[in-house]
């Protein structure tokens, strides 16, 4: 059942929203997530994925999460196989077009070990936006007539009271915790992102708590020199964690492209052995390393260098 507006509002009213430092460790930040929470991840597909946060929540053995994201890539496989979630809300779920349909996703969904609640990309985005607006739903002109419609009991149809037109109504989505990765953030949680904004702003506004992982922590003065770049203000943010290369093997605009050779390696393992391959990957790359830095050390420096060179090239010409 969706929570009442009163309840959602009380959570915001009662939390410390002051202009204070919120810098903490990855471990501490992920402690803000409780078993059973709805966790929404920012970015999209293999771009600006909060991979370090996901990696840490798997290590902390979070259970029964509802996981939502605009489009899910390899991180969705990891969450399913680690049994952190049995309920994924997204619009598209596989590593990427050239890598084929995820065998891990197919296994979990086809064997009914987990639910993939499929919304169209726009309807899911509107759900976060309604959540951020503090309203119960948004009308839209998509989803009508499709077979997705009858599969989603929360989706309703209405006749517009002004025009008489048929419209679909998508209900607000208010996650308990948002995990978002960005390029720059100050210690108070003022987020300045580059490249595509994705759905991050709406997710931050819709969620009870927001965890920011960032490539760099910049000073509050830096933020004040370019306030027009701020996409998420401090009062929406509960934790700030500096995690350079926090999206790898996914990409972070202007900093690095995906580590394609590691993605190829993962996909080969996952497509070859299914969930067993993902388990092997989790053992090796998620559970075994002692820290995110140790995990990064397991990737090949030459691959990261290439990803970084290509990623930074957007500023070259």
């Amino acid at each position: 059942m969706p929570r009442s507006y009163k309840e959602l509002r009380e959570v915001i009213e009662n939390k410390d929203r002051g202009l204070r430092e919120k810098v903490m460790s990855l471990t501490e930040a992920i402690h803000l997530i409780q078993d059973g929470d709805h966790v929404a991840a920012g970015g999209c597909h293999y771009s600006r994925t909060p991979m370090a946060a996901i990696w840490e929540l798997i290590r902390q053995k979070k259970k029964d999460l509802v996981y939502s994201r605009s489009i899910s890539s390899t991180e969705g496989d990891l969450l399913l196989v680690a049994e952190a979630t049995k309920h994924v809300i997204t619009s598209w779920f596989s590593p990427g077009v050239t890598w084929g349909v995820s065998r891990a996703m197919r296994h979990y969904i086809q064997e009914k070990l987990a639910i993939y609640e499929e919304w169209s990309h726009m309807s899911l985005g509107l759900r976060y936006r309604a959540g951020a607006m503090g309203i119960p739903f948004i009308p839209t002109r998509v989803m009508l007539g499709s077979d997705l419609f009858p599969r989603l009991p929360e989706l309703k149809e209405m006749e517009c009271p002004y025009t008489g037109e048929k419209l679909a109504l998508v209900p607000a989505l208010n996650p308990n915790v948002a995990i978002l990765h960005t390029q720059r953030c100050d210690p108070y949680g003022n987020v300045q992102s580059e490249g595509l904004p994705f759905m991050d702003q709406d997710i931050a506004g819709a969620s009870d708590k927001v965890i920011i992982t960032t490539e760099r922590i910049i000073s509050n003065d830096q933020v004040r020199r370019s306030p027009d770049r701020t996409s998420i203000p401090f009062f929406q943010v509960d934790a700030v964690v500096e995690v350079p290369y926090g999206c790898l093997p996914h990409e972070c605009y202007g900093y690095y492209e995906p580590d394609f050779s590691h993605m190829d390696y993962y996909v080969k393992l996952m497509m070859g052995k299914g969930p067993e391959g993902v388990k092997e990957y989790l053992d090796q790359y998620v559970y075994a390393p002692e820290s995110w830095t140790d995990y990064l050390e397991m990737l090949k420096f030459g691959d990261i260098l290439r990803a970084t060179t290509d990623g930074r090239s957007v500023y070259n010409d």
Partner: peptide, 20 residues
Amino acid sequence: LEKPKVRLPGSGGANDIASS
């Protein structure tokens, strides 16, 4: 969808594009 032979990746924005 209830008993898929193959679960595919999904709509993404396809439904939205086809609709609008």
